[in-house]
Amino acid sequence: VPLGLGLGYKELNCDDPETEQAALVAVDYINSNLLQGYKHTLNQIDKVKVWSRRPMGEVFEIEIDTLETVCHVLDPTPSANCSVRQLRQHAVEGDCDFRVLKQNGQFSVLSAKCDSSPDSAEDVRKVCPSCPLLAPLNDTKVVHAVDAALAAFNARNNGSYFQLVEVSRAQLVPLPASTYVEFAVAATDCVAQDVTDPAVCNMLAEKQYGFCKSTLTEKLGGEDVAVTCTVFPTQPVLPQPQPDGINIPSSMVSSATPESPPDAVVVGPLV
């Protein structure tokens, strides 16, 4: 639609290469500024309007749908290499409104607003009647499973004591009765084997994060804990550019998005 119809904007095709460029910049922005949870990937462009901007440039007002990937935001893996969380694993989508400026051929984010929500239980049941649904992160079984997994990891760890950063997702499995959890950890200034009071341990100035997956299986008279953690390389903290009027803490963000990530170290599985 040409300019000059009284609306002040033009409508591009949602699959237009220029629209896709703006959408990909928006998704990169999401992944660079998420402080918790998982990286997202573009799923669909819902709407786009392009406004002329004086004295120069264009503003893309764009609505996009995203999907959660399996990569935690602290994982330095480029989001292009992260697979999408499947419906059977209880997928999560994001709905976002962005304003992206294109000036001198360069895109930059002016504003962003996103909400994320898990797929409905009914939809998960349609594709997999027996698949476990996402559980509340403050569920007592979830909290216990994370505590047990972290203790098991630190007990076998000869280096730094790792403390919990966040519980990222959890599922209660009915058969065999078990709790599956995923959580982020960070290295502290304590030595794992020497810790008596974890409360006195402090995260290192040069942050070193890890991401753990664990299953706690209930047994007669006890429980089994299996945990695998990937420890990411330390990353220097760099300031992040922010759009006008938005102030997002960046201390964790910069460590999650290096230009060329070194290899991570997988520790585990530990049983």
């Binding site: 949602c14 629209t19 896709e20 990937t41 799923n43 462009i45 749908d65 419906l87 989508e93 797929d119």
Partner: peptide, 27 residues
Amino acid sequence: TVGQPGVAVAAGPVVRPCPGRIRHFKI
């Protein structure tokens, strides 16, 4: 739609520019 004899007339639904394609699956 009135067409001239021998002149092809576009048929079928109008292509909507938005929303765009789904890359993975729709929730």
